[in-house]
Amino acid sequence: MTKPKLDDEAFKAELAGLIPHLRAFARSLSGNATAADDLAQEAMLKAWKARESYQQGTNLKAWTFTILRNLFYSEKRRSWRRQQLDPEVAEATLVANDDPSSAMDLLALRTGLTVLPEDQREALILVGAGGLSYEETAEICGCAVGTIKSRVSRARKALAEIIENSQGGFSGDGKLRASEAFDDIMKQADELSSGSTADARN
């Protein structure tokens, strides 16, 4: 049985087309732009080296995401494992946005993402933003479809709570400084995540 293989030129073109997605997925895992690009580059090169084992007709995006994810988790001491939200990024999010309430949401979302358990965060990003199906995401993460569904739903719930709580502090006072807002969201997110470890058992 010989499955057709993409020739190198076609593979290279498709892989190059996926670079923006590799970068976006890496950024969501690592949180740090420079480290994320290192990760995305290594994943791209690994995918290129492994091109013989890619089966044409299957989803190349899911295949490269699997490689990237394995790389991320296998090298724990690499810089890309650092998961933090830089207060300067937070400040920039707020300043660059012309709609303050939407900027607040976006900041709360960024912050919320950093405190979600890793497995929930990646499932939510892949399904909610990366355009992958539950089935593809399950394959990438090496677990059952039902597990992905429950991770996504728990992640959505937790984020909704974080965002809702963060809004309490801002309504009616547009003068709150961005750094205070950031501290406030961070604090609330911490409280929530320490509570949510308990229900992450099931």
Partner: peptide, 15 residues
């Protein structure tokens, strides 16, 4: 949340 999540992701893919 879904919209904002996609926005965060697309911020990177559009770079």
């Amino acid at each position: 949340i879904g919209d904002q999540l996609r926005r965060l992701y697309d911020e990177v893919t559009e770079e």
